[in-house]
C-alpha cells in the first residue's frame, strides 16, 4: 500500500544552521522516533534500527537511510528502505527549506511510503494513521532538536 503525507514545521534557526543539521547523519538519526541503534557509514549513508509498536504489532525495523542534499541547498531528499516482520517499507521523504529571513526557517516536508508484506496486508487496516504519526513525529523531532540546539 502507498501512503502519502505532508506537513510544515517552523524552526527558530537560520537556514544555514538548519542545512548543517539535516546534513548530519547522527543528528538526523536521533530524530527518528524510538531509535535503538544507529550506524553511520559516511556523510550521507547510515543504518538505523527503530522500535515499532502498532497495537499488537511490536518489533523493530532496520532502515538503510540515504541523505540526498540537493545542490542548490534548498531541498533535502531522504531515501529510506527497510524491513521487519517479513515486510518492507520504501520511503521517499523530502523537505523544501525556506529561509524566512528573521532567523527562522520553514520546512515544507512531504513523504511517500510504500509498504509491502504482511504488515501491509494484515495490518493495513490500521497502518495509515500510525505511519502518519511516525513520519509527522520525525519531522516534529527535527524541529525540537534544532530548537534545543539553537
Amino acid at each position: 500500500m502507498k501512503l502519502e503525507y505532508n506537513g510544515t514545521e517552523q524552526v527558530p534557526l537560520g537556514k544555514d544552521a538548519v542545512w548543517a543539521f539535516i546534513n548530519n547523519p547522527e543528528k538526523v538519526a536521533s530524530c527518528l522516533p524510538d531509535v535503538k541503534t544507529v550506524v553511520v557509514h559516511d556523510a550521507t549513508n547510515f543504518d538505523a534500527t527503530v522500535s515499532i509498536g502498532l497495537g499488537p504489532v511490536r518489533g523493530s525495523f532496520k532502515f538503510k537511510i540515504t541523505l540526498e542534499p540537493q545542490a542548490d541547498g534548498q531541498r533535502m531528499n531522504v531515501k529510506i528502505n527497510g524491513g521487519g516482520f517479513g515486510s518492507v517499507v520504501d520511503l521517499l521523504a523530502g523537505a523544501d527549506i525556506i529561509d524566512n529571513g528573521n532567523n527562522t526557517t520553514t520546512l515544507n516536508w512531504s513523504g511517500a511510503a510504500t509498504m509491502r508484506g504482511p504488515i501491509a496486508t494484515v495490518g493495513g487496516r490500521v497502518l495509515d494513521a500510525q505511519a502518519q504519526k511516525l513520519i509527522a513525529g520525525t519531522f516534529a523531532n527535527v524541529k525540537t532538536r534544532m530548537a534545543e540546539q539553537g
Binding site: 499488537p56 504489532v57 511490536r58 518489533g59 516482520f85 517479513g86 504482511p118 504488515i119 494484515v122 495490518g123
Partner: peptide
C-alpha cells in the same frame, strides 16, 4: 485478536 497476529509474527 492476539493469536492470529502472533501467527503472522506481527505480534511477538
Amino acid at each position: 485478536s492476539l493469536i492470529p497476529a502472533m501467527r503472522y509474527r506481527l505480534a511477538r
